[in-house]
């Protein structure tokens, strides 16, 4: 194998890392805001799937990718508010509500897809052209760097942009402070005359929006097709990344990239016919995440009131 190929492999590896990290980043940053308000939303898996479907359907019908993305985000908001109704208004157990949401959303997505494309199965799977990757004058043509950073999907840039935006929102704005307070000490928020419920609804809506958009990345920017369960466990990883990232936006960015990198390394090793059982390579991202979690940096501190319904009295 000559030098040229080595370089392209490395460049490809980093470009893949960023792309693979994108849906995780969307879902994790959304989930971060949700958890900061004290709600653990385990329904991400279901929202990703609905987002993937809605994005696909709208784009398939209208031809507009961005309309699909907004539709997916909107469907995420709807599901987020539904989750809010269960955990904030009805004060149901958050764990079981999230799982119920997964079950329900998964069923709805599958059924909806069947109803819209009744002939699927007798014909080829409907698919569409994915988003064009971004091209920047000059920047995209820089050797190596251009390929890695400046030929990504527009949605990828949005995902990365969400990190400083959410960071600013949480730490530099009044509402962000109130939101964090809701997760730490809802009683104090309530005593100040602010609505705990409104903050949690808002956070869930935002989290749902992000997961919905993340879902649309799977269908509109990655694979160009929808199939049931297309999210394939990515929602669970996203939730784990929030904890791994210690509920801090920048650290979530780092761990999402770390996870993407291991995944990309795994795929590249397989592509190079590495003489290791491929199952071991596939398990690598999960094993390394556990190990990384155990290193000193892994000590996590969750919002104090995470997962508990706030009841007055």
């Amino acid at each position: 194998m000559n030098n040229f190929f080595q370089t392209t492999i490395i460049v490809g590896l980093f470009a893949s890392t960023i792309r693979i990290a994108t849906p995780f980043l969307f879902a994790s940053i959304g989930e971060l805001v949700t958890e900061r308000s004290g709600v653990l939303n385990l329904g991400i898996e279901g929202i990703l799937q609905i987002g993937a479907l809605v994005g696909f359907l709208i784009t398939f019908r209208t031809g507009s990718h961005w309309l699909g993305v907004f539709g997916a985000g909107f469907s995420g908001i709807v599901l987020g508010i539904f989750m809010g109704w269960m955990v904030t208004t009805l004060k149901l157990n958050q764990t079981v509500s999230g799982l119920a949401l997964n079950l329900l959303a998964g069923g709805i997505a599958f059924y909806w897809f069947r109803v819209v494309f009744a002939d699927v199965g007798a014909e080829n799977l409907p698919n569409l052209r994915i988003f064009q990757t971004a091209r920047f004058p000059i920047l995209s043509d820089i050797p190596y760097i251009g390929t890695i950073f400046f030929r990504q999907q527009w949605l990828t840039y949005l995902a990365f942009l969400s990190v400083p935006v959410v960071s600013y929102f949480l730490y530099r704005t009044r509402v962000g402070l109130q939101l964090r307070c809701t997760g730490e000490n809802p009683r104090a928020v309530d005593m100040k005359g602010l609505s705990v419920a409104k903050h949690q609804y808002g956070a869930l809506a935002f989290g749902g929006f992000m997961a919905g958009v993340g879902g649309s990345f799977l269908t509109l920017a990655s694979s160009g097709m929808f199939i049931p369960e297309i999210q394939a466990g990515r929602g669970w990883i996203a939730i784990a990344l929030v904890i791994f990232g210690n509920w801090i936006p920048w650290r979530i960015l780092v761990v999402a990239l770390f996870f993407g990198l291991i995944e990309a390394v795994q795929l590249t090793l397989q592509a190079l016919n590495a003489n290791v059982p491929h199952q071991l390579l596939l398990a690598l991202p999960y094993l390394l995440t556990i190990i990384a979690l155990c290193t000193a940096a892994g000590r996590s501190r969750s919002p104090l009131h995470l997962g508990l319904p706030y009841k007055r009295e």
């Binding site: 490809g12 792309r19 799977l218 990655s222 694979s223 990309a264 397989q270 592509a271």
Partner: peptide, 26 residues
């Protein structure tokens, strides 16, 4: 080179696996 994605149904992984192969000259 053959990449196994260990799933019957995961087009996103399938796409990434193909991209990684393309980077190695496939």
């Amino acid at each position: 080179s053959v990449t196994y994605i260990e799933s019957w149904f995961d087009p996103v992984s399938g796409r990434e696996a193909a991209t990684a192969q393309i980077a190695t000259g496939v």
